[in-house]
Amino acid sequence: MTQVRKAIIPVAGFGTRLLPISKAIPKEMVPVVDRPLIQHVVEEALAAGINEIILVTRQGKSAIEDHFDAHYELEETLEKKGKDALLKTLSEIAPPELTITSVRQANAKGLGHAVYCAAHLLAADEPFAVILPDVLVKPQVGGDTCDLGRMVERWSSTQASQIMVEAVPQDEVYRYGIVDCDEPSAGESADMRGVVEKPKPEEAPSRLSVIGRYVLPYRIMELLRDQPPGAGNEIQLTDAIDRLMQEGKTVQAFRMQGRTFDCGHVEGWLQANTTLAREAGYDI
């Protein structure tokens, strides 16, 4: 049975919701407490047993790759000054088991297109994760459950695609992709019947919103190869997932146990910094 070892992280977006912060700095490099957003996400992948990261990037985003690269001059300077704690912190950014590969998305044609840009870096029939870096997923206070890791375990035991969801208030469902399924308990999965993008509250099949974590089979790449544009005239990942279900393949909604912070907009980014900094012991 093929294990999930690779995660595709699309980082080619302009980050318009974070302007002007993201005008010259990739939004993925904006700090959340003591490290950039992208590092939080890569650490999440490592905690889930995923050690091969594929960044789908574009021109002007090289700072993300540089962050995970060695900086010999800096390391030598810290070593000479005996700053061992800082050296250890740098070494933890990219542990030996982590590999980072980048591929360019020349044109912004939607999430499905971004994911497909990495197809050639996967072996035939190799499952993979997709992680959207705008959203941080953190355990509850005092907990250590890795929701993405639990999704990987569910894939290994069932071979069913997994899509992470969380419950949102009924009057906010119009803002999200909402799955149609029987509501699972936290930490469990339920078979999906479909997904509706931004439904009216009275027409929503549930209150479970998709939050940017997927574990998918290689078959998705084959479907994305000829996926026609959908909403916004873009190639949508959810459209390919719908086609997968139409083929009779099982797709499950995994209900997360942790917390989410939407760092793609200023309010959510500030909330993440305030909450996580206090939990880390900073006096703010």
Rank of each mutant, 00 (worst) to 15 (best):
A204R: 00
S157K: 15
V173M: 05
E197N: 13
S185I: 07
M164I: 04
D226N: 11
V165W: 02
S185G: 11
S206K: 04
P199E: 03
L208M: 13
I163V: 14
Y174A: 15
D191N: 12
D182V: 13
G177W: 03
E166Y: 04
V195R: 15
D191H: 09
A186Q: 15
L224P: 04
V168F: 08
I163R: 00
L224V: 11
L208C: 08
Y218L: 02
E166A: 14
Q170T: 12
I220R: 10
G187T: 10
S156K: 15
Q159S: 12
E197G: 09
K200L: 07
M164L: 09
I211M: 14
S206A: 06
I211D: 09
S185N: 13
M192E: 12
E203F: 01
E222P: 00
T158S: 10
E166C: 14
P169G: 10
V195D: 05
V196S: 02
K200E: 12
E188K: 13
L216N: 12
S189L: 02
K200C: 03
A186V: 08
P201Q: 06
V173L: 04
R225T: 15
V173T: 15
E183S: 13
R225F: 04
D191Q: 11
I178S: 00
A160K: 05
P201A: 08
E197S: 14
L223F: 04
M221D: 08
A186N: 13
P184F: 03
D182K: 15
S189D: 01
A186K: 15
D171C: 08
R219C: 01
R193C: 09
V195C: 10
A186E: 15
D191A: 14
E222T: 11
L224T: 12
E183H: 07
A160V: 01
R175G: 04
V168G: 10
S157A: 14
Y214A: 08
Y214Q: 07
Q170L: 04
R219Q: 10
D226W: 01
I220S: 07
Y218A: 11
L208E: 08
R225N: 10
I211W: 05
V195K: 12
R207A: 09
S161L: 05
G212D: 09
V165D: 06
S156D: 14
P169W: 03
S189N: 05
Y214I: 08
M164D: 11
E183P: 06
V196F: 00
V215L: 07
M164C: 12
A204I: 01
M221Q: 13
R193W: 02
A186G: 05
T158V: 02
I178D: 00
S156F: 01
Y174N: 14
M221R: 06
C181H: 06
S157I: 09
A190V: 03
D182W: 03
P199V: 03
E188P: 03
V215S: 11
G187L: 02
P184M: 07
M221E: 07
S189V: 01
R225V: 12
R213K: 09
T158P: 00
Y176P: 11
R207M: 09
A190I: 03
E197D: 08
T158L: 00
E222L: 06
A186H: 10
P184A: 11
D171R: 11
V196R: 00
Y174W: 09
M192D: 06
T158D: 00
C181M: 12
I178M: 06
V196P: 00
Q159N: 10
P169N: 12
E166Q: 14
V173W: 01
A204T: 05
S156Y: 03
